[in-house]
Design a binder for these strands. Structure first.
Length: 907
RNA sequence: GCCCCCGUGGCGGAAUGGCAGACGCAGUGGACUUAAAAUCCAUCGCCUUUUGGCGUGCGGGUUCGAUCCCCGCCGGGGGCACCA
């Protein structure tokens, strides 16, 4: 400690260097991306909007109250090295980070800490900014915002208004010349008024309420009656996920009831075809494409055909898996159904209606429900159609024994439900048991491809406080009215108590109420919507937090634009098709990095909005995200003692016993497990600890070197030392630890030159393909070689520093400066490999597939010469047993493969 | 159950048809040191140890040559959950 040279690359020096460069970058506006026009045009004069744009996007973070662990920044470090790499290649890189701050988690955190969500959200954002800023990420600070900012919320509401004011015309030509386009609802109204499009009752004779109903069946954002899981005990509507199999709430175990509720939806089903078609042109992981395809519903189904009581029965199964599922198949042969007394009236009526009229049933399926027959029970039974002769009859496949929503509580009740839902004469002549029916169905299945859209419209209302209010009011006749754009944003009123109301848990007749409904002063308004001052009631539901995350990437382009949600010139400059190296006409963000957990919903919703905005002429690109990359997760070891309790992972001692690693906590042997990083498993490591003990650069290098970016990997604190040693060695190679001055040689030997060249070649390819782990390995090889030299050649040092800069920017800037440069590395051109020829290469000679000899040969050796040379080798002759080879394969200059006569015989 | 992905040293992982185990961690031996840390050097799949033999979950196949391509198993992970 006393003897440590004053210029050793210690964590303390690393911190000093890191803070120094972070300040310089900030003061110089180093990461300002340049817009095509307007106030953000000049990007600090460096780029002047003339370069090719490159947009790098991180998935919108939610500012959690729990703080970050070392897994969270993984994706940000990845996008940062890509951004820095692209800047060095001469691109105008747009890289920004905002915050997705509305939604249930934010509200729950606020409730738990007894504060207002706006306050907790702002605090959490500040904390997250602090933790991230210490990483030295190259975001453009001018483009950051939160979804809760009134200025942003205004445009979210504005986009909702466009969706509400549009309908989908399957025959209208859209900008790319194909059929099917969103159009203003006014066009539809004109068609109704002129009689060009017929309605059941003449349009002119309809009441405002009737007109509203008709239009809502066309609007892309529409209001209708849908089912929800209502839990009076919690005073809230629950997601299906939050309801247990017993039909109770996961939290609190309260009864849950199915309720019809008037709420908002998005007509995403209208875009199903296009959402499927355009997937093919995207540079996305195949698994994510498959998940979206599966979700949208054009999946393969099975047609099963068999006979029941002399009649041919065909069944289409949208889930191929259900046939072999341990479920049972019941086939009624008539349409008369006797439904259980216990079933709610609604469900009974819908059931009968659906069963007796296949047509009605099919249309209701298309509009909102995934299963043709089971919609009234929604997932209780996977009800399907069967065709018996000319008749359509219901088929049930189920493995549920209990369905509390319908009053079916256990095995006995479930049987009751089954028996009553099938025919009185269940055709015993065909199948005596369900197993037989299943077997027959399996054997006779016809593997035809069928299409059904299972995709369902997107439920867009939440009975919650912390979300965007709808720009909607209701007149006294119950008809909804859109607020004009000049009324936006509709801000949230502050409520003394924003929590959900409490109800009698057993009162099934109660209805959920939105917290906003409690503020009568806010709800009741007097407005002039063009026909004089009138009284209205505001919509009291709020939007889900998908709303804000559906379009944030557009706002980064022109964050302060007061006239547009995105400035059209910036949209064209940054996102239009072919805007840089994109090979198709879809356009969109160049690179989108985030977790695979958003593979379906977020990505699907954002694509849907993007396409609508494209149809309406606001955007130039057909897709929002051209390339998608899913980074893996950082997992961590956790340790349990003999009682199964978790013990702090940071205090574990490992020893080697009989060649195996074993673990001790306070002298007691403990077990090692593997799982998520977090407080509950006592294995959390925070970025702050890493900054303090190693520095941000070491942390960045470690996270990027752990393995392929797309894989999940275990956090192993011991391994961090390797990354730290690498940076320390690099530092020592360039800087004299005693004086702090650069000590390099102006000469470079040819061996170092060749290795440098080879490294540039390899690292460039690795960076391009987002393989930082192998790039770092190659840089370590070069660095280890430089360590072995008496003095590091300047050219090699400068090459190293340039190549490592995207991953470990601070130390590289410092070394670059010490090497005598005054400009930041950020815009220094990425090194180019020289054209050079190896003179001599090693050739491998194989006999019967085994390497028997190595030859040093001229790189441009001719195949004949190489063959002759190989055959003249004594060892080769020995392995051939003195005979001529049976076969010779020569791939000059790398390999000669010989097949011996004896080797062939053995085979 | 169905679909997708993945199985390589003690560990994280390299190599995508051409010398398996790059690079890092851990381990072992040594140098330096009063000592420790740090640093540096050597070693580091298994068996024989000398030429060699065997090794990428298992069993087949294609090929001059297979971790890589094909077929069949075994094992692990993810999706199929209307959810933020």
């Amino acid at each position: 400690m006393i003897d440590a040279p004053s210029w050793r690359y210690t964590p303390a020096l690393a911190e000093k260097i890191e803070l120094k460069w972070q300040k310089i970058w900030k003061d110089e506006g180093c990461f300002f991306a340049a817009n095509a026009e307007g106030p953000l045009r000049d990007g600090e004069g460096r780029l002047a909007g003339k370069r090719k744009p490159y947009t790098v996007l991180d998935m919108f973070p939610f500012p959690s109250g729990k703080g970050l662990h070392v897994g969270h920044p993984l994706g940000y470090i990845a996008t940062d090295f890509v951004s820095r790499f692209k800047r060095m290649q001469g691109y105008n890189v747009l890289h920004a980070l905002g915050f997705d701050a509305f939604g249930l988690p934010a509200e729950q955190f606020a409730i738990a800490t007894g504060q207002h969500p706006r306050k907790t959200t702002e605090e959490n954002i500040a904390n997250m900014r602090r933790q991230l800023s210490r990483l030295g990420l190259s975001f453009d600070p001018r483009r950051s915002f939160a979804t809760t900012d009134p200025d942003y919320m205004k445009w979210t509401q504005w986009i909702f208004a466009r969706l509400y004011s549009s309908y989908y015309d399957p025959d209208f030509l859209r900008p790319d010349g194909k059929k099917g386009c969103a159009r203003p609802i006014e066009d539809l109204i004109k068609e109704f008024e002129s009689g060009k499009r017929k309605t059941q009752k003449p349009w002119q004779q309809m009441s405002a309420k009737e007109k509203s109903e008709v239009l809502n069946s066309f609007r892309l954002a529409y209001i209708s009656d849908s089912f929800v899981n209502w839990c009076p005990g919690l005073g809230t509507v629950l997601a299906n996920e939050e309801v247990t199999k017993e039909g109770k709430s996961e939290r609190g175990n309260w009864p849950v009831y199915r309720k019809k509720l008037r709420q908002w939806s998005m007509r995403i089903t209208a875009y199903a075809d296009r959402l499927l078609e355009d997937l093919d042109g995207l540079d996305w992981p195949e698994t994510v494409k498959a998940m979206q395809k599966n979700w949208i519903g054009k999946c393969e189904g099975l047609k099963a055909a068999f006979e029941v009581a002399g009649e041919k029965v065909e069944v289409f199964l949208p889930y191929p898996s259900l046939l072999s599922h341990p479920s049972f198949l019941v086939l009624p042969s008539s349409l008369s159904l006797d439904l259980p007394e216990k079933w709610p009236k609604d469900a009974k009526e819908e059931w009968k209606e659906g069963a007796s009229s296949p047509k009605a049933l099919f249309s209701s399926f298309k509009s909102s429900h995934p299963y043709p027959l089971a919609h009234s029970m929604d997932g209780v039974f996977s009800g399907l159609f069967a065709r018996v002769g000319e008749k359509n009859v219901p088929v049930f496949i189920s493995d549920y024994v209990s369905e509390p929503h319908l009053g079916i509580e256990g095995e006995e009740d479930a049987k009751f439900a089954r028996i009553h839902s099938i025919d009185q004469n269940p055709s015993p002549s065909a199948f005596d048991t369900e197993e037989e029916a299943l077997k027959a169905a399996k054997e006779k299945r016809i593997g035809e491809r069928e299409q059904r859209y299972r995709l369902r419209d997107w439920l867009f209302s939440r009975q919650r406080y912390w979300g965007e209010p709808f720009p909607i009011v209701y007149s006294e006749d119950g008809v909804e009215h859109l607020l004009p754009d000049s009324f936006l944003p509709v801000n949230l009123p502050s409520l003394p108590d924003y929590r959900p109301k409490s109800f009698d848990p057993d009162d099934s007749s109660s209805l959920p109420t939105a917290p906003l409904a409690r503020n009568e002063e806010w709800v009741q308004v007097e407005l002039d919507l063009g026909d004089g001052l009138k009284k209205y009631r505001r919509e009291t539901n709020t939007m889900p937090n998908w709303a804000g995350s559906c379009w944030y990437y557009l706002r980064y382009l022109s964050p302060k634009d007061e006239k547009h949600f995105v400035n059209p010139a910036e949209d064209r400059y940054f996102l239009s098709p072919f805007h840089n190296d994109q090979s198709n006409d879809l356009g969109g963000v160049d690179l989108y990095v985030g977790g695979v957990e958003h593979a379906v919903l977020h990505l699907l919703y954002a694509r849907f909005w993007h396409k609508v905005l494209y149809d309406l002429g606001y955007l130039s690109s057909r897709e929002p995200f051209y390339k998608l990359f899913n980074q893996g997760y950082v997992q961590a070891y956790a340790y349990t003692d003999s009682r199964g309790q978790y013990v702090p992972a940071s205090q574990i001692e490992s020893r080697f016993e009989d060649g195996k690693e074993v673990f001790y906590f306070e002298g007691e042997r403990v077990n090692r497990e593997f799982g998520k990083m977090g407080k509950s498993l006592k294995n959390m490591v925070t970025p702050d600890e890493m900054y303090e003990n190693y520095g941000a650069d070491t942390f960045r290098v470690y996270e990027m070197s752990m393995g392929p970016l797309s894989d999940s990997r275990p956090w192993n604190l011991k391994d961090v030392a390797g990354s730290q040693r690498f940076l320390q060695r690099l530092w020592r190679n360039v800087v004299d630890e005693q004086t702090g001055e650069a000590h390099v040689s102006e000469e470079m030997d040819s061996k170092t030159g060749r290795l440098l060249n080879k490294t540039i070649e390899g690292v460039s390819a690795d960076m391009e393909e987002m393989r930082p782990n192998t790039a770092i390995a190659k840089l370590i090889v070069l660095n280890n070689h430089l360590t072995s030299l008496p003095l590091c050649p300047r050219a090699a040092a400068e090459g190293m520093v340039k190549m490592l800069f995207p991953i470990a920017p601070h130390i590289c800037e410092e070394l670059w400066e010490k090497l005598g440069h005054s400009q930041t590395l950020s815009f220094t051109p990425w090194p180019k490999a020289q054209e050079w020829k190896e003179e001599e290469v090693v050739c491998v000679v194989q006999v019967d597939g085994k390497v028997r000899c190595r030859l040093s040969v001229p790189a441009d050796i001719d195949e004949k010469d190489l063959e002759r040379l190989a055959l003249s080798q004594e060892t080769v002759k020995q392995w051939l047993g003195g005979e001529d080879p049976l076969k010779v394969i020569c791939r000059a200059p790398k390999i000669v493969s010989l097949v011996s006569r004896s080797g062939r015989k053995e085979k």
